[in-house]
């Protein structure tokens, strides 16, 4: 049995194009080690990608990396994704995205957090003017 330190992986990625794929690939490898179902691995990857591109798009600090901590628990994979950006207010993001991106009945943008919540079992957002951390958990026996 691995001890706790060995069951954590930390990935630090610069805000370069497609670096979200490095995070998604890492999540996929760890989820495979943990014997997650294939669909649940896909769900984790989609959530990781959306979280990273949200950080890339909205942190306004492209000089600062995104830190991703993967914690392999007995019954779940927990991810903490942190940027050092300007932060945001959750209620304002929701309203502005919804109001600003609707076109002919299909909303094009502002889906990131909804996709993340749709894919993961638990999602928590902490944001301040010093950065944002999204903590999300996928249980091995997922309700989604």
């Amino acid at each position: 049995m691995l001890d706790l330190a060995e069951r954590e992986v930390i990935l630090i990625i610069p805000m370069y194009p497609n670096m979200e794929l490095a995070a998604a690939q890492t999540a996929s490898i760890l989820a495979e080690i943990m014997n997650f179902e294939e669909n649940h691995i896909d769900e984790i990857q989609f959530a990781v990608i959306e979280t990273c591109i949200n950080a890339f798009e909205h942190s306004k600090r492209k000089d600062k990396p995104v830190v991703i901590k993967f914690i392999m628990k007995d019954d779940a994979l927990e991810l903490k994704i942190t940027d050092c950006g300007v932060g945001f207010r959750l209620d304002q993001v929701k309203s502005s995205d919804r109001d600003g991106a609707v076109s002919k009945g299909l909303r094009k943008r502002g889906w990131g957090l909804e996709i993340i919540r749709h894919m993961m079992d638990e999602v928590n957002v902490e944001s301040s003017d010093k950065g944002t951390t999204i903590t999300m958990t996928k249980k091995k026996v997922s309700s989604k």
Partner: peptide, 9 residues
């Protein structure tokens, strides 16, 4: 296999 929300938009 992988698509992000911008791709879907």
């Amino acid at each position: 296999r992988l698509i992000n929300s911008i791709g879907i938009s």
